[in-house]
């Protein structure tokens, strides 16, 4: 294992975050704070408690998950796409580095950034609602699994994309709608029965439900199912990444 190469890629990616602090950290924190103000304080004050949890507190796990998903995908996809776009990928391909090490470097950095962001947003939420985390261990597990899984998805998108439009299209047209429809702002139990069943086809439902359970012990689906579905999604992303390794898809001619 070329640990120095993993570290070189990881630190280089993390330095990029440092350079774009406003875009990488301040902007998501501000938009999350706006969600708290609008949905929590303004609209939320007129919404009754959900399963004994105030609405503003109810949306905290969903908002963290929303940031985690979008930031993981964006960071990882941009991280690998940018070297492809400007041509510096030649150095990664000509260095004594395996594809696995490249993935660990990029995905590790993207996941680290989203975890840091998730924790910052968690801390920000403490300014709006009293924090209560019933199962800190499971909260961390979901945080880790989700950020790694979606960073892998972002990496795949960054390899697949051959233009900035494609790079944006999946996060905008798929991830964001799935997150909003996945129970960020509501419990799927409030949906009509048919839509409840349809919602189960949305993988984000399992992530938000499990994550919310780790806070308040309330969930749309059983925690075991949430963990299993997250692992299935992780396995799918790993399988696709493995296929990219094997074929050199879009990396080598």
């Amino acid at each position: 294992m070329n640990y120095r190469a993993i570290w070189a890629i990881y630190t280089s990616e993390m330095m990029r975050t440092g350079r774009t602090l406003a875009q990488s950290i301040v902007s998501p924190v501000i938009s999350t704070a706006l969600y708290f103000v609008v949905f929590g304080a303004a609209i939320g004050s007129r919404i009754t408690d959900i399963d004994g949890v105030s609405y503003v507190a109810f949306i905290v796990p969903g908002l963290i998950m929303l940031t985690l998903l979008t930031q993981s995908v964006m960071n990882a996809s941009f991280g690998i796409y940018f070297p492809r776009f400007i041509g510096t990928i030649y150095e990664l391909l000509s260095a004594p580095v395996s594809f696995l090490e490249i993935v660990i470097g990029f995905v590790g950095a993207a996941a680290s950034k989203s975890i840091i962001l998730g924790l910052i947003i968690l801390a920000t939420s403490a300014l709006f609602v009293p924090l209560h985390i019933a199962h800190p261990f499971w909260m961390i597990v979901f945080l880790l699994l989700t950020s790694i899984t979606f960073s892998l998805l972002g990496f795949i998108i960054g390899i697949w994309a051959d233009g900035f439009e494609k790079l944006q299209i999946i996060p905008l047209l798929i991830i964001t709608p799935l997150t909003f429809l996945g129970g960020t702002f509501y419990s799927t139990s409030v949906l009509p029965p048919l839509w409840q069943k349809i919602a189960l086809a949305n993988p984000v439902v399992y992530l938000i439900s499990g994550f919310r359970w780790s806070f308040y012990e309330i969930s749309d689906v059983h925690i075991g199912v949430s963990v299993a579905m997250t692992l299935v999604f992780l396995a799918i992303c790993l399988a696709i990444t493995g296929w990219i390794f094997k074929t050199g898809y879009k990396l080598k001619n």
Binding site: R4, A5, L92, A95, P96, V97
Partner: peptide, 13 residues
């Protein structure tokens, strides 16, 4: 930073 990164990629201390 860029030359340091290149050295790291090639597994050199």
């Amino acid at each position: 930073a860029t030359v340091s990164m290149s050295r790291g990629l090639f597994n050199k201390p």
